[in-house]
């Protein structure tokens, strides 16, 4: 025979506490909406080079897919291919012919020959550290133009 105290214990064991998920759901919904608002498919294609900080700008122009030239504090790159070394915001050891940076010119010519898409075929996306002077920038711009890329999109950090 069960006594009364044993029956009460059994009932307590069977009644599992229900986890209240409402607060958790609220929190997750807010995080999800925030992340969905902040995610942008366009920016997935943009890989910011290491060792550079972009200048801030009020420009609203979005990302353009084109050949990327990166002027970091330590190297000059086309896409992710090394072109020349940079030290103290100056090009070091690169062959220069007038204002033409020869290895950059040759690399861009190669990219131009390999370009499949006609869209943005004359455009270079330039990622450059905000501390560079126009002297360095000018030789890069001139070289790009000589290689057939007279249009530029300067990458900036939106303010």
């Amino acid at each position: 025979m069960f006594d009364e105290s044993m029956g009460r214990r059994n009932r307590e064991q069977q009644e599992l506490p229900i986890l209240n998920l409402n607060s958790m759901m609220d929190m997750l919904s807010i995080i999800l909406v925030f992340l969905l608002c902040n995610s942008s498919a366009e920016e997935q294609d943009f890989v910011l080079a290491k060792n550079l900080s972009l200048p801030g700008s009020t420009s609203k122009l979005g990302f353009t897919k084109a050949v990327q030239v990166k002027i970091t504090r330590s190297e000059l790159l086309v896409e992710d291919t090394f072109v020349a070394k940079i030290s103290g915001h100056r090009l070091v050891g690169a062959e220069v012919d007038g204002s033409k940076i020869v290895p950059l010119f040759n690399m861009l010519k190669r990219y131009k020959a390999l370009a499949k898409s006609q869209k943005n075929k004359n455009t270079v996306v330039l990622q450059a550290d905000k501390g560079f002077s126009f002297e360095v920038l000018n030789s890069v711009l001139r070289t790009c133009a000589m290689a057939g890329y007279p249009q530029f999109r300067f990458a900036i950090q939106k303010e």
Binding site: L21, M24, M25, L28, S29, I31, L32, L35, L36, N38, S39, S40, E43, Q44, F46, L48, L54, S57, S59, K60, L61, G62, F63, T64, V125, L141, R142, C144, A145, P150, Q151, F152, R153, F154, A155, I156, Q157, K158
Partner: peptide, 27 residues
């Protein structure tokens, strides 16, 4: 909950906490 728990890490991995823009220039 399962859906949220899957989506949040995915979005966190792909989220851009800085926004990149462009300035159009020519020479």
């Amino acid at each position: 909950m399962n859906l949220f728990v899957t989506m949040i890490p995915l979005l966190l991995l792909t989220a851009a906490f800085y926004h990149i823009g462009m300035v159009s220039v020519s020479v």
